[in-house]
Write a protein that binds this DNA or RNA. Sequence first.
DNA 1: CAGTGGTCTAGACCACCGG
DNA 2: CGGTGGTCTAGACCACTGC
Lengths: 247, 247
Amino acid sequence: MATKSSAKKKPRYLELADELREAVLRGDYSDPGDFPTESVLCKKYDVSRFTVREALRKLTAEGLITRKRGSGTVVQPATARAGALHQPLSNVGEILQYAHDTTISFEPGKPGAIPHDVAEQIDTKAKGDWFTFRGKRTKLGRKRPIAVTEAWVHPELADAVAQIDINAKTLFGQIETLGQVSVTRVTQDIQAIKGTKKILADLGLEKGDPVLRILRCYFDETDRMFEISASYHPGERFAYSMHIEVD
Amino acid sequence: MATKSSAKKKPRYLELADELREAVLRGDYSDPGDFPTESVLCKKYDVSRFTVREALRKLTAEGLITRKRGSGTVVQPATARAGALHQPLSNVGEILQYAHDTTISFEPGKPGAIPHDVAEQIDTKAKGDWFTFRGKRTKLGRKRPIAVTEAWVHPELADAVAQIDINAKTLFGQIETLGQVSVTRVTQDIQAIKGTKKILADLGLEKGDPVLRILRCYFDETDRMFEISASYHPGERFAYSMHIEVD
DNA sequence: CAGTGGTCTAGACCACCGG
DNA sequence: CGGTGGTCTAGACCACTGC
């Protein structure tokens, strides 16, 4: 009960990926040639090569490391991630991870319909009174927020909404556990817009400053859209960055 | 010698993926429950389960099939793949999928250094005089362009640049064939910015209108960044949309 | 050349799903 | 319950890199 509640057992390769990711972000392997070879990792963590490779495959997909037959594994230069606020993201897990050293606090609002400017962007019959939330996300040690987020949760999930912890890292993570649904796919729409007064104020921006809006729709296994979120980011201080492997 | 020249030997799992992909697209497994299980595939193709799983992993990443423990593998309905706008961004070809019914014409410019606002965003020692191109992308039947694109090609690729067809769909596709390099990864940075006068004019926008900038870096197999491109899209009329499958 | 990561085999146990 | 896909082991051979 200390940290995690019902902590399901993670596969070994994901644990290993977490450990290695932390080490990389900590700067342990900052010099080229520092990153351990597969065989070293096998011995050090006492796992098979398969497990090591699955973990490294994950880090590769995240863009943290690069691998080359014959030469070895190298971590990607930190500068690529340090510049502005870069958020690598290739799967939903990493949307979560993006909440790494940031904090957010949501406030529930009055249930209502999805606003027009959002509804028109997602072709949908999102009828009914959805539960609303609003929050500001800040990065540790930074003054101005990196995002304002509005979220809407499906009317049928009232039970889950009632138990939501306002200070958790992400809403949909909680919805998953509390509402007994699980995300199977997410759609994202990214657009540059003029912020409303309220959003500009919350982000600490001037009138006319551009805002990046990321609109996400979360679908469960029955393909029901159970959460919609809109995040507004300051254009100058925030870049959404992603990484695509070609195989 | 017929189609491909030096056809290197493909790994078995990629060949298998090709065979299965063809079968799926041919409609062989259109009924749910038709797709063979792993063990069946192992026997049929006389390969180990590892090989089968690698092949299926590829098809999963392409969004062709879905797998669930306990139940099996099913092919995704064609509708999930046909939606022009929501395509999983799992490979480079699909990044430029939005180039589908659009046309672009590039104009070469004077070789020069990478501009500051671009260089600072990508961690790089992109020194030297890169070849520059600039083009407007328009959608058929539309008046105003949906993008202005600037691109820089690595100084060493002079030979390829000399042969570039100014009216092709994408630059990097040509660079690949002409320059004998192949894309292995791409990074993308998406940001909301204020457009410069020139860009606003080209896009048909007013002063103060927000612009979406997509900055891409293309890397070859030696991890050399051989092309950089910056696309500027009108904030109000353009949304970058993507689809993420959860694993 | 020795060592790297890429491919591949033949097993194994497990969590989950359906009947 | 039997069969599915998910995880994992302990081997093997290979293509490629760097020295």
